[in-house]
Amino acid sequence: MAERKSITLALMDPPYETARVTTAFRLAEAALRKGIDVNVFAYEGAVALGFAQQKPHANSVKGTTVEEEGHPNTRAWLAALVKLGDGQEGRGRLDWVNCGLCVDERGVFEQAGGRRGSPADFHAFIQRSTNVLTIGTR
């Protein structure tokens, strides 16, 4: 039996600031659907991606209500990826780790998914991953 493939994404960007988060989420989904395990090390601002108190808002410029705007918060995408990454029915497993120190200094303790960890988790991910993408902030 072939060894399971896994990829690791190290993310640094906070929600809503850059396209890198979107691309990283798309990569994670596509990999999980292909049966590839995905490890995420959320570092610095990226630990806010799953902050559970994020709320959607209306958009007065477009004249849309909250419902009409349909603007998902990153916590919703993170939670959906965690659900998708259950390793069932041929899908890959998602292990999302938030850097604990980065969580502390931002106060984003309540999370919609993932687990608290440290750079030691990132080190372990590096050891077992086919490839590692460091998607750093710019």
């Binding site: 990569l27 596509a30 086919t130 490839n131 998607i135």
Partner: peptide, 18 residues
Amino acid sequence: TIDQLVDLVADPETRAIW
């Protein structure tokens, strides 16, 4: 496609750099 990109990243023979 993003699927093609994942295949490249998951190739053990490939060194991927973002």
